[in-house]
Computed example of a mutant assay.
Amino acid sequence: MTAIAQPSSPPEPTVARAAERAELFPEKAHAHVRFSQLGKIYAGQQGPVAALQGIDLDIQRGEIFGIIGRSGAGKSSLIRTINRLEQPSSGRVLIDQVDIAAFNEDKLVELRRRIGMIFQHFNLMSAKTVWKNVELPLKVAGVPKEQRQRKVAELLELVGLQDKHTVYPAQLSGGQKQRVGIARALVHDPAILLCDEATSALDPETTQSILSLLRDINRRLGLTIILITHEMAVIREICDRVVVLERGQIVEQGPVWQVFGDPQHEVSKTLLAPLQHALPDDLQACLRPQPSDGHRSVVLDLQFTGGTAHEPDLSALFGAFGGRVSLLHGGVERIQGRALGHLLLVIRHSSLSVEELLIRARKQAQHVQVLGYVA
């Protein structure tokens, strides 16, 4: 097997250059977790496989940060470099501005106690009760019994399982098992919580309850939460910012409202497609590309991308069109205080030209297009 050359790390900047960089890029100087030109290469049967390539990313203290992508995009590889479960092939991972690459075993143990992690399949010990599952990491760390009991009691109350402490995992629902996993991840008072597809095995209602719990933990404890998922609905519900990965590279990143409202990359658009209000097939079949004697009512698609913090003023919009305006399909929701969505409207008997309708629609919506004409 051919050995893969390890690129040398770039030299550390001088104090002056570091100060200048901190002034120009304050988000980097204060980032809780920072990836700098991170790469990860695995040895494959057909040769080296690049799981991560040139990842530059800054995650701020106290935020809920989402990492999304299709299967094989590199999400798990990226998140596992934070606690050194994966060793990068190139680049650096910095936590609180400290490069963790040179950590010895003792330093790694200390690091991993500062970083909690929850998993898709819970990883609970079936022969131990809820209490003992949560207590185990403390026992391994040599924490005195009285402190262990106090901590476990606090955490079970935090996750809403104080009445389940004598129950075994087989007697719990999927959501309750994940709550045990969350409590166990918090036993060492971590500053960072990693969530590896933590809701993928749960039904929608249970997913909502777990996301609400994570949001509450983030606010009450000030944790930095980093989660990976393939579900855009999870990102929409809980995250402050999101990065989209494809084939080990960052293809898009930004505040959640921005990526959801106006995705730029095809991968982002594909992942968002299940959440979009597409034109139903029966309506699509009625559309004609050009107006005719029987098909003169125009169908407009108005897209709201969150460019303003104001909801669309529908009364003003409909009044400006003249004629009769009907809502065919769509909807508008609020993400991070901004209005996002689509409205598909049919406009009948208006005295305005299509060009005039488009001009008036653009005063409210960020993107407008003519979908066609109907009877």
Rank of each mutant, 00 (worst) to 15 (best):
E356P: 08
I335R: 08
G337H: 10
L352E: 13
Q336H: 12
V368N: 06
L340M: 12
V346C: 10
R334Y: 11
V332L: 02
H329L: 05
R324F: 08
G330S: 01
H329Q: 04
L343T: 03
S351T: 05
Q366Y: 06
I347F: 12
Q364I: 04
Q364G: 02
G341S: 09
E355T: 06
E356W: 15
H367R: 14
H349A: 12
E356K: 14
E355C: 04
G323R: 01
G331P: 01
L352H: 11
A339T: 13
Q366V: 06
V325T: 15
L352F: 11
I335G: 12
S353G: 12
G337D: 07
A361N: 01
L343H: 08
I359D: 13
V354P: 00
Q366H: 05
K363D: 09
Q336T: 03
G322L: 02
G341R: 07
L344I: 14
H342C: 13
L357N: 02
E355P: 04
V346Q: 07
G341T: 12
G341P: 10
H329T: 03
R360F: 06
G331A: 01
G330R: 00
G323M: 03
E333K: 11
A361Y: 01
L357S: 05
Q336M: 12
H349W: 08
V368D: 03
V354K: 02
H329P: 01
G330W: 01
Q364D: 04
V325Q: 11
E355W: 04
G322T: 07
A365F: 13
S326Q: 15
R324E: 14
H329C: 02
K363E: 10
L357E: 00
G331N: 00
R362L: 04
L357C: 04
L358N: 00
L327R: 14
Q366N: 05
H342Y: 05
L343R: 14
S351H: 04
V325M: 08
H349T: 09
A339P: 08
K363R: 15
R348M: 03
Q366L: 06
H367E: 15
G341Q: 12
K363S: 14
G322Y: 11
R338H: 12
L345D: 10
E355Y: 00
G331I: 00
K363P: 05
H367Y: 14
Q366P: 03
Q364Y: 11
S351V: 00
A365K: 11
H367T: 07
H349K: 15
L343C: 11
L343E: 06
H342Q: 10
K363Y: 08
E355K: 06
